[in-house]
Design a binder for these strands. Sequence first.
DNA 1: ACCCGGGTCAACCCTTCGATTGATCCCCGC
DNA 2: GCGGGGATCAATCGAAGGGTTGACCCGGGT
Lengths: 216, 216
Amino acid sequence: MSEAPLRILLVDDHPVVRAGLRAVLESAGRLRVAAEASTAAEALAAVDRLAAQGEGPDVVVMDIELGQGPSGIEATERLGRTHPRLPVLIVSTYGAVSDVQAAVSAGALGYLLKDASAQELRDAVAQAAAGSLILPAHLARRVLGGGDGAEPTLSPREIDILEQLALGRTNQQIAAGLFISQATVKTHLNHIFGKLGVSNRTEAVTVARSRHLIRG
Amino acid sequence: MSEAPLRILLVDDHPVVRAGLRAVLESAGRLRVAAEASTAAEALAAVDRLAAQGEGPDVVVMDIELGQGPSGIEATERLGRTHPRLPVLIVSTYGAVSDVQAAVSAGALGYLLKDASAQELRDAVAQAAAGSLILPAHLARRVLGGGDGAEPTLSPREIDILEQLALGRTNQQIAAGLFISQATVKTHLNHIFGKLGVSNRTEAVTVARSRHLIRG
DNA sequence: ACCCGGGTCAACCCTTCGATTGATCCCCGC
DNA sequence: GCGGGGATCAATCGAAGGGTTGACCCGGGT
């Protein structure tokens, strides 16, 4: 391996998190944070600026959430158009399957949770720099649906029901709100219970929320 | 001038964020992170441990979100019971009015957003150590301005019930789990519904979660 | 042509929930 | 020592939830 440290562009809207990422990444010496950005626009500008100096970053470490503006996913997509070979590592608080899929299809070379250890983070950056796709085992299993990982697939209609459920609506209210009968609501509910492996509406909401099937 | 540095207990479930907070807080010299914790239980234990060594923390900096276990709000409440005068500073990604109110009624001495600058963060800790309530102006205006104010206070027992509720337990199961009768569970439930302004258990869980009264 | 899955609906029956009222006990603060 | 709030329990009753079975329509794929 080369001795020159890898140049990293850090993108996160929280100064505190940037400081943390910088501390963790630089603590081993092989990595160097060449620049920081707090928005998607800043990130794009920083990459161009560094590249113009002949010091284009080797890896971009990007928070999936960038506050008000474009998300990390969007930023990744745009980066991919101008710098197709620049590896982007997405870091996120949540491991929702949909988020991981969105990240990967936006061109990210990896997806890490913020509760990853310092070592995992550094390794992931090194791997991304080498062009490998990085997905922690637990995420990979869920995303790829391997074996008994068996992520249940809820139909769009079932999601509708679930969202109403989370608001504490009764079957009657849900039926009225969606212009269907209570009988239909009950049927959907039973399907949902079966898919989520629960036995009542309250638990269904909790499970659905924990899997980010509904917002909240 | 060279007083002993303030001892800080850092509570956050993300190693990266802890590293960031530590870096920011210690960068000015007057503050020292005496211990870190990643869960509510660890936080309580850490405070007791430090106190037993005669080095009880001067300020606790606590993330409002602590992953799967009890939230920072809950941890703050519990800390308040055993260490009433220990200042707790809540840090959060979001500035929802309900979150701020929940934090303050849980006994927190301050509420900061994670996008605060390093200087703001350090100042806030110093102020909290001095016993002052810390609320950034923009948050303070929103909280004090628009208010129904009246945050309901749930009793510890009611929180117990609520947590069982969130797991989808039936009244019977809750009763068995807490060694009380269903009648008592129902009574608590009715009190909870009244305080939260809801009319069923599912909605109660949703509202409780949104106010960080329970984990999630 | 056939089947299958999603969405719709109905009838039946049993369980659970939620509201209400009223009661006892204990602890804490005034 | 009195009041109040928290925690405990009981009995009752109507409303809602949940399990089961069976049915129809539609669109897409074999």
